[in-house]
Design a protein around this nucleic acid. Structure first.
Lengths: 355, 355
DNA sequence: ATAGTCTCGGAAATCGATTGCCGAGATGAT
DNA sequence: ATCATCTCGGCAATCGATTTCCGAGACTAT
């Protein structure tokens, strides 16, 4: 039975109704604090229920100086890789008693800063941030890392205090190179790299990784991490007279843009062109042909983040030195857009099917 | 110059440092409250800067009983339609002084409830929720709507107090029917509906809308709102001996699954089959062929939500009666998966290009 | 000169929950 | 019987910012 009130019941309402003090109510409802006689606890619980009491977490947070909350800042939820990271991390936090709260910065430095300030002011226990920009986000992240455990995700940031969790882009490019060297028809030369922007470490590392394994010979086009750039890059390649070859994209969204435009222009993939992506977003399994790509280990990255957060929260590990950066190896997922010579995209190393 | 401290500077630190009271500090930094002599304000601002003061929003929230925050709960960020709603709404809130915080419920009722409790306890000014389930989410939403402005988005919920913002599914199906009646080759009969689950109003309304305009004759297959079901549905249709026809899907993700499987099985779209989606997610413009779909007016829906929230927050409109539900008309976007007879997918009604 | 009005800073209560400390009563040991 | 020890509920301080109320001083009008 719930009472109608303009202001919801507070702890002292419950205390009065149960004939005890607020200290007792607190201990009965939240306290792992101390043992309590079971019947008193029952009485309090009952009173709370009768009044429809719900705890005011703001009061608790103020007193405890911790909100049991982690804030995550994402540049753009329309980017499937970012939203998949957000989803994976949310799922990982379900089993903890910490709530993961998300904020979209819309790839705007001012909004990003606002999000950080908001989370800091609300006493999050940690901050996970996919930086909108490598250099210009740095000051914001420095502010954050000065007062709370701050983890840069996917994109490195030049901050002495922030941690980093991401994938090994150079190794990813090595996988691509092995794949291309072993499996790609000699006829599908030349190889071209279609990169994203250099404003993020992922963008830079994938270019330098490509250069490291493929040499300085192959041309590289640089643009931004979105579909439109992939489409435009396809136009550029075709205008340039290219009619066949292997295109290595720095991200799946770019690869999907390439794919769609190449097909629209009447070319076959993988007949005329082979296309290789990076990230392993869900829709890449869905493209036609399905995309060969380097899958980032999103679940493992989420696990690393949870570990860092729990270690940072626990008193036991306070002061213990933690690794500053955790870089995880990605894996090649074979699709039809660049199949192996023998298996033609249905080989044993095929990525896991869609759920 | 910032001082190193284990605890960050509080308002009374600033007050002491500036030689004033906390009241003055509060008024200088936050107060639209009252006029102040400019030099005193400057002195306070300076002191705050020198100490690296950042406001503790938890304290403010406790006192003001409002957090300048709106919580949004989404079933699954891996669903591109939901993440696009989240992104659009985030963007819409940028211009206000309210922060939009997101929480992913992972389509799990218990997690969803936990998210609601968390947001309520943190004194959000409003709650926007895409319910994980029509019936089973109702009690959770009832709890919420009893204490805060609650807006069900995209999926209706049987709650007397919650608002609703969504699109007119029946009208959407009318658009599909007109398109099919006018433009589709007689040869591309029969028409089949591939629906989602009936656990959400969108699922039900699109089915009943389909039935209303297309009659009881055409078969309907029901499954769930995801790619895998679209693929399985394609298999079912083909196993059933179908070799040509028009497939109306209840969502783009289903349509994309249909598309990919039909093509894998060697059929042409739109040659053998025509496929029509619903939602207008970004990747639908990217599929090959591009998807003909009913685009939900995501920006307008976001605007409606912002309006409701601002109206609910403003004192001026307190007690004014607001429309309980706001239903907005979607629009048909022609793609190549079901082109008009004449234009073959590049007609004047073509949807806007990808950014 | 005196009363009335205005401006603006400060003292202190307040928001709601948590927790250190105290002490009353119960239990047990000698 | 007396004292040490243990259990467990309550008092009150506390977290950090906001805001109501008060009053000191400046200014104006008569």
């Amino acid at each position: 039975m719930e009472r109608e009130r303009s202001h919801p019941a507070t702890m002292s309402d419950v205390a009065r109704h149960a004939g005890v003090s607020t200290a007792t109510v607190s201990r009965a409802l939240s306290g792992g604090d101390r043992p309590m006689s079971p019947d008193l606890r029952r009485r309090v619980t009952l009173a709370a229920e009768e009044l429809g009491y719900r705890i005011n977490l703001v009061g608790r947070t103020l007193r405890r100086r911790s909100s049991s909350t982690v804030g995550m800042i994402v540049p753009d939820l329309d980017n499937p890789f970012f939203s998949s990271l957000a989803q994976a991390l949310s799922r990982r936090f379900e089993s903890s008693d910490i709530d993961l709260l998300l904020f979209s910065a819309d790839s705007d430095l001012a909004i990003e800063r606002r999000g950080v300030q908001s989370f800091l002011g609300r006493q999050v226990d940690a901050l996970v941030i996919i930086a909108s920009h490598e250099r210009d986000s740095a000051s914001t992240i420095d502010i954050a890392s000065r007062s709370v455990l701050t983890i840069a995700l996917d994109r490195r940031v030049p901050s002495a205090t922030a941690r980093f969790v991401g994938c090994n882009n150079k190794y990813g490019m090595q996988l691509v190179h092995e794949h291309v060297a072993n499996d790609v028809d000699i006829r599908l030369q030349p190889v071209v790299f279609v990169g994203g922007d250099m404003g993020s470490s992922s963008g830079r590392e994938r270019l330098t990784g490509f250069r490291h394994w493929f040499g300085d010979e192959p041309p590289a086009l640089l643009g931004s991490f979105d579909v439109a750039w992939g489409q435009r890059a396809a136009d550029l390649l075709l205008t340039d007279g290219m009619t066949t070859g292997t295109v290595v994209a720095a991200a799946d969204v770019i690869a999907l843009g390439l794919l769609s435009r190449l097909q629209t222009r009447g070319f076959q993939v993988p007949g005329d062109f082979r296309v290789i992506g990076f990230d392993g977003i869900g829709v890449s399994y869905l493209a036609h042909p399905t995309l060969t790509t380097v899958r980032q280990p999103v679940e493992q990255m989420s696990q690393q983040i949870l570990d860092l957060v729990l270690a940072g929260t626990a008193e036991a590990t306070r002061g213990r030195v933690q690794a500053r950066a955790r870089t995880i190896r990605p894996a090649l997922v074979l699709g039809e857009s660049s199949p192996t010579r023998d298996h033609h995209g249905t080989g044993a190393t095929q990525g896991r099917a869609l759920p």
